[in-house]
């Protein structure tokens, strides 16, 4: 669906994007994460055809949106397939929510018929006729999202989409993304809130210093990074030593005693052996939790 090949973007001596290859498949929710200045936003803008590439090319649905000689094909047809929610979306204060959608629907050349439904979808029906200047940050973000959904786009670019949203609105936002994914919409999302996207994206790319450092599913990146797992073993304090003894012969890392549980670090290949050893403790283990490394751990592993 979206293919980037050897993409470079140089601003003088600064290499904002430095030889990026990416493949975003049709219908997937693809995450693009990185520190500030990692090149995500530049990559986003090039994928949208907003800025030219220095070298390489980017294609959406086969049509070149950035590359040697600029965009080709019918750029309007490509743009009509795309919805874009910029980071810190800025809309027009003097328009109402409904007028905002009417303006962008006209620009996009799509029907006005869905405007009210879109406002309802993002929970802004009550504010449809209020000027945007009276909207809170979260309401503006939701209106921006409604704008991105105009014309039932096949591809969505969402740059930090949950900025300013409260927890309930974030949940509602991801519920909409799930439904869109069910409809086969391809989505590219950036976020600094890694915990928020780690369970939601199909695949992601970690960018640092203008390069893609790693790309794959969260699980494959964990395995690639080979970060240790953590076991949380709930036992009575008098049984702590029994746990230590049972795990003593295994290749585990740190064993830390807490008030009501023991935290055990081990490598992925020792996971089943640890579970088997704990099973021999015969009723002493009251509960067991296995914690995979978080996306944050993976991210810092690759980006540092």
């Amino acid at each position: 669906m979206i293919v980037a090949r050897g993409v470079h973007k140089h601003y003088g001596a600064i290499h904002a994007v430095d030889g990026v290859d990416l493949d975003v498949r049709a219908g997937e929710l693809f995450g693009l994460i990185g520190h500030n200045g990692a090149g995500k936003s530049t990559m986003f803008k090039m994928m949208l055809g907003l800025i030219p590439v220095t070298a390489g090319e980017i294609r959406i649905d086969g049509a070149m949106v950035a590359g040697h000689g600029g965009a080709n094909g019918d750029f309007r047809a490509v743009r009509r397939k795309i919805g874009y929610l910029p980071e810190n979306v800025v809309l027009y204060d003097n328009l109402t929510g409904l007028e905002t959608l009417q303006f962008f629907a006209r620009l996009k050349g799509v029907s006005q018929a869905d405007n009210h439904a879109l406002l309802e979808r993002v929970g802004l029906t009550h504010a449809a006729r209020r000027r945007v200047r009276e909207y809170s940050k979260g309401m503006r973000q939701r209106l921006g999202f409604a704008q991105a959904l105009l014309g039932k786009p096949r591809i969505l670019f969402l740059d930090e989409p949950t900025t300013g949203l409260d927890p309930e609105a974030i949940r509602g936002f991801y519920a909409i993304l799930r439904r869109l994914k069910g409809d086969g919409v391809t989505m590219v999302i950036t976020s600094h809130i890694l915990a928020e996207i780690q369970e939601r994206v199909d695949r992601l790319a970690i960018m640092a210093a203008g390069k893609v450092q790693a790309c794959g599913t969260v699980q494959s990146l964990r395995e690639q990074m080979d970060l240790p797992l953590w076991f949380s073993v709930r036992v009575a304090p008098e049984d702590f030593e029994a746990v230590r003894a049972a795990l003593g012969h295994l290749p585990v890392g740190a064993i830390e005693a807490h008030d009501d549980h023991i935290a055990v670090q081990c490598r992925r290949e020792a996971k089943m052996a640890v579970i088997a050893a704990l099973a021999t403790l015969d009723g002493k283990v009251r509960d067991l939790g296995v914690h995979e490394p978080s996306l944050e751990d993976v991210f810092f592993g690759f980006s540092d």
Binding site: R79, V89, V90, L107, F157
Partner: peptide
Amino acid sequence: ERGSLDLLLSMPI
């Protein structure tokens, strides 16, 4: 400067 130009230019215009 306001940041609305990118959104406008992402439209079919």
